[in-house]
């Protein structure tokens, strides 16, 4: 895999860096927006993964590493800066913009902020946002999806000038809480 952002560091490198407590400080990583976004996602997902295990935990008592591996690979792709989305400016000699990567990270963070929800993927098109999520077993799925939708709308309205027609939330996985004796 190519380096993330403008660096030569891979997802594994960033994971190791996070595991080391971000010490010693790596100035190149700390100065790169895409690396920062990946680290933030890894931290957030890492925190959640200590509570959540895949639903097929009876067959695989430990965390499903391939599931998380796939998730991290998706995150690494999503944080790529992509196109600059213009923000309005009254001065013809001033251009303001926000990157697609920043918006995708914003959407993912908004979804992850909902209790019991872990965002799987985020896709942006002209005026449509598609999000896939996993929901903790026992949490009403429709309520969780609606909470994600509202959180995403709110953050997009606050931080972008996109005219969003729809935020589509798909629940494509369910998780259970890990306990010392197995799963609950």
């Amino acid at each position: 895999m190519d380096g993330i952002g403008g660096t030569t560091y891979t997802l594994d490198d960033l994971s190791d860096y996070l595991d080391s407590g971000r010490l010693p400080v790596n100035a190149e990583i700390e100065a790169d927006a895409e690396c920062q976004a990946v680290l933030a996602s890894l931290e957030r997902v890492g925190s959640l993964s200590r509570e959540l295990v895949a639903r097929d935990a009876d067959e695989n008592p430990t965390l499903d590493e391939s599931w998380f591996g796939s998730l991290f690979a998706t995150i690494a792709l999503e944080v790529k800066a992509g196109k600059d989305i213009p923000l309005s400016s009254s001065d013809p000699h001033t251009s303001l913009s926000i990157t697609e990567g920043a918006i995708r990270e914003l959407v993912r963070a908004a979804g992850d902020s909902v209790d019991g929800v872990l965002v799987g993927s985020v896709r942006l098109s002209e005026s449509v946002v598609d999000i896939s999520i996993s929901v903790l077993l026992g949490i009403p799925v429709t309520g969780a999806a609606e909470a994600v939708r509202q959180a995403v709308y709110s953050d997009l309205f606050k931080h972008t000038e996109l005219a969003i027609d729809s935020v589509n939330v798909t629940v494509d996985d369910v998780h259970v809480i890990a306990t010392e004796g197995g799963t609950a």
Binding site: Q36, A37, L87, S95, S97, D155
Partner: peptide, 10 residues
């Protein structure tokens, strides 16, 4: 000419 690019909101 001034260009401001938001690369992260966190």
């Amino acid at each position: 000419d001034i260009s401001v690019r938001i690369s992260r909101v966190a």
